[in-house]
């Protein structure tokens, strides 16, 4: 049975299918495993970060720091692997601890100082970007055999290479979906997005949940940074500027309401794929400027905002009807 709350997710899915069909009809070559594999690989870092952003937005918050945290992670890894003999796995653990703690600190600031997430994570954005500059202003290449090993891992289908980082993104989405729907933490995230006051009255641990949400977002930004460093084999403090906005766009196109409470992690996955698809189309076309990506994404965002507004109206109308229905229903009951 199709439930009304699933409608935005279905629309996102339909948009993806439609967009892919359009692309494939223009360029039949796009209907290949290779394109799909590249979609996953090229958008892996954005997708992982967008999972964290989905949790943040579902709770009614926003996290502007993730682009900077990704850049910081990249530079941190590059510098550590260049200057020390620490094994990359240890470095990964170190940077994940750091970014998770950074997110948790922002969450604590938001909750205990009752500050708007926008301002707190804006400060976080400057802090993380600044820290990246402090480590290095230059692009630092990463040369380590373990990196080569990781980059060399892939699963071959029909000549297409499904690489490790794409798989990592899919795994992150799966864990995210289960967390959102099958754990108390996930339910508490939705509860916060539905109304903090009511959630508090219903016994939701608001402090723990808020800190947890931003810790998850920070940690996933760290993971995204690791993936980005694997993708580019370098750490550069000027990289991934504005990625937080791309992530927000993916979340919204994925059908999540910016005001929180409504949406699905799975929607974000298709949001990412839609955005990746647009980019791929422009590459295939070859004559279009890459800025068209931005224009199409802008148009899509507008369309989805209008759609959400329309759905909200429809829901209100339905609620009014339900009221009338129960008036007769309860008469039958009594």
């Amino acid at each position: 049975m199709i439930r009304s709350t699933h409608l935005p997710l279905l629309i996102t899915l339909a948009t993806f299918v439609l967009a892919y069909a359009l692309c494939a009809s223009a360029y039949p070559a796009m209907l290949s495993w290779r394109v799909i594999a590249n979609l996953l690989t090229d958008n892996a870092f954005l997708g992982i970060a967008a999972v964290g952003m989905t949790f943040v937005i579902l709770s009614g918050g926003i996290d502007l720091s993730i682009g900077s945290v990704i850049a910081f992670t990249g530079v941190f890894l590059a510098v550590i692997l260049r200057d020390t003999s620490i094994h990359p796995l240890v470095a990964f653990a170190l940077v994940l601890t750091l970014t998770t703690g950074f997110g948790a600190a922002m969450g604590a600031t938001i909750h205990y100082l009752e500050m708007p997430p926008f301002i707190v994570t804006l400060a976080g954005m400057f802090l993380a970007r600044g820290a990246a500059y402090v480590l290095s202003t230059e692009s630092v290449p990463i040369t380590h055999e373990f990196y080569d090993t990781l980059q060399g891992l892939y699963w071959k289908v029909d000549g297409a290479r499904f690489r490790l980082i794409g798989g990592l993104m899919v795994l992150t989405f799966l864990v995210g979906i289960i967390t959102a729907h099958r754990t108390r933490f996930g339910q508490n995230v939705y509860a916060l997005g539905g109304g903090e006051q009511a959630a508090k009255l219903m016994g939701v641990p608001v402090a723990r949940t808020t800190i947890g949400i931003y810790a998850v977002s920070g940690g996933l930004a760290g993971l995204s940074g690791i993936v980005f460093s694997l993708y580019t084999s370098a750490g550069y403090s000027l990289a991934t500027v504005g990625v937080e906005l791309d992530a927000i766009a993916a979340v919204v196109i994925g059908g999540t309401l910016l005001t929180g409470g409504y949406g699905f992690v799975a929607g974000t996955f298709f949001g990412i794929l839609i955005m990746g698809l647009i980019q791929t189309y422009i590459v295939f076309d070859g004559t279009l400027s890459s800025w068209w990506t931005k224009i199409v994404i802008g148009g899509l965002l507008f369309a989805f905002i209008l759609l959400q507004k329309g759905l909200t109206w429809a829901a209100q109308k339905r609620a009014a009807q339900a009221r009338r229905r129960t008036a007769t229903g309860s008469a039958a009951l009594s």
Binding site: R184, Q187, N188, G194, Q197, A198, L201, M202, G203, Y262
Partner: peptide
């Protein structure tokens, strides 16, 4: 009503 409009009836009943 101090329940959460975005959750299902069961989710509201059993939250926490």
């Amino acid at each position: 009503v101090n329940l959460l409009p975005n959750l299902t009836v069961a989710e509201n009943l059993y939250l926490g």
